[in-house]
Every structure is written in C-alpha cells, then in structure tokens.
Amino acid sequence: MSSTWFRRNKQGILTTTEEKKETPDGLWHKCPKCKATSTVKELHHNQFVCPKCSYHNRINSEEYFEILFDNNKFEFLFENIVPKDFLGFVDMKPYSDRLTDAQKSTGLTDAMRVGKGKLNGMGFVVACMDFKFIGGSMGSVVGEKICLAIDHCIEHRLPFMIISKSGGARMMESAFSLMQMAKTAARLTLLAKARLPYISLMTDPTTGGVTASYAMLGDINIAEPNALIGFAGPRIIKETIKKDLPVGFQQSEFLLEHGFLDFIVERKCLKMKLAQVLQWFMGSNN
C-alpha cells in the first residue's frame, strides 16, 4: 500500500552505553570505572562521586573547600607565597615556563591552597593540594604554606587538616623539595606540643615524599576509598621485583588492612565524620 522506505526494521536503540559517542565536556560526565554517564550538574551535586558505582573522581581544593566549609564561606590564607625558579632548572622545558604554564592553565599559584573557615560552626584550617598543578608536586611553596598554616593554628588554637593529593616531591626544586619533608615534619612537632589536632586526609594519589612526611604524621591518618597511597610508585615496584602486583595493592583498603590508616571515609560522609572527630579532639578545650 504505502511505501516502505521509512519503515523501522530494527527495534529500539541498539547502541550500548559503552559505544556511545563522547559528549562535549562540561555537560556530561562518563565514569571512568563503570562507564555510566551522568550530567556534570548531577555529579557536582553528588560531590563528584559516581552515583552508580560511587567511584570518587579526583577533585581540587576548590571542591574540597566547598564540601567542607559551612555555606562555602572561608578565606584563603598565605596566597602571597608564590613559587620562583631559584635554581634555573631546565629539563625539556625550563621550570620557570612550567610554572607560568601551570599558573595560566589552572588559575592557581602553586599546588596547595590554605582555607580557613567553619565546619559545623567549628573553626578549622585546611591545607589542600591541587593535583592539576604540576602533578600536585611538593616544592618550597607547599612546605612554606603548611608551616605558616601550622603557626596560624597554634596562634588561634585551631585544628588543622592537610588534604594530600600528590605525585611526590617537585624534582625541579631538587634538594629544596626534599627538605620540605624535614621542614614540615619539624613544624608538625610544634603543633603536637601545642596539643592541637592534625588530621591527614589522603586522596588519590598520595605518593613519594608527601606520603613519607606530613601525610603519614596525622593524629589520625584517613583516606578516601580506592585512593592510591604509597611511597614508591607501582611502576617502579613492578620493575624492581619483576612480578605483577596483587590486585588492590597500595589502595586505601590495602593500607587500612595493613594498619596504616585509621579509617576510610566516603566523600559524602566526610564533613559529618570530620565534625565528629573535631568535636572529640577539641572537646576538653572548649
């Protein structure tokens, strides 16, 4: 009767989720673990945790401050401390260019920002690393900001937290970056003497000199689920022992099992948990 050129031969949408074409950035997000898609708005609302499989996407200081501080109200401290290329280090690219490029692309001055605000009404100082700034590497600015933040906490009797997210020491600052391990550890002894709490939150990834200094020195050391935490990177260990690494090696759950974490906390419970422990820590002082 009628022509058949528009007749539907195949039923339903046959493209599987996995085969779906990439959508423009900023609208949709595809979970790297379960491949489920969600809108960025939805994801943001869910604190960048996949609503389907609760994979914790990497986020930056901006998002952590928003999650932690009441009504997203806080002030930045020590933004006046900025990096410089003291050694004139040049590899495939001068360090000074790396700094300028990173500053341009991230809008940050270095790999750490310090925020001071209130968490459930309690005063709190949080130093948070930004992985997008040269791999969250620890150089002189990171070390100095931590030390200044500790001094600030001692002066105002405030609890302190560092959120670590780092590939380790910043090679382009050579021995100066190594000495940030000693410098931050030394300053943390002063915070301990002042009997103020220091919470270390490790997020994906926390490795190298950062793990081997302040990240492991908390009164409590806690982590987000499935974060890579270790001293040497998995590739180097694999090359050293010439064997495949066990599943889950150097993940938060592995560290908890081996006794190096106090607990693992999901991002959606982070603020509530911190409020609990801060209350416990500061209880006798209030």
Partner: peptide, 23 residues
C-alpha cells in the same frame, strides 16, 4: 627500597616517623 613488602610494612610511615622523632 621500593619493594612490595616495604610498601606493605609502611616504608612511607617509617621514614615520616623518623623525621618527626629525630627533630
């Protein structure tokens, strides 16, 4: 040492602890 057992037994924690205590 960057080994598997070194990680299991907390290489990073051991070094960090020494820094803190030696100070």
């Amino acid at each position: 040492f960057p080994g598997l057992e070194a990680e299991e037994r907390g290489q990073a924690e051991a070094i960090a602890r020494n820094l803190f205590e030696m100070v």
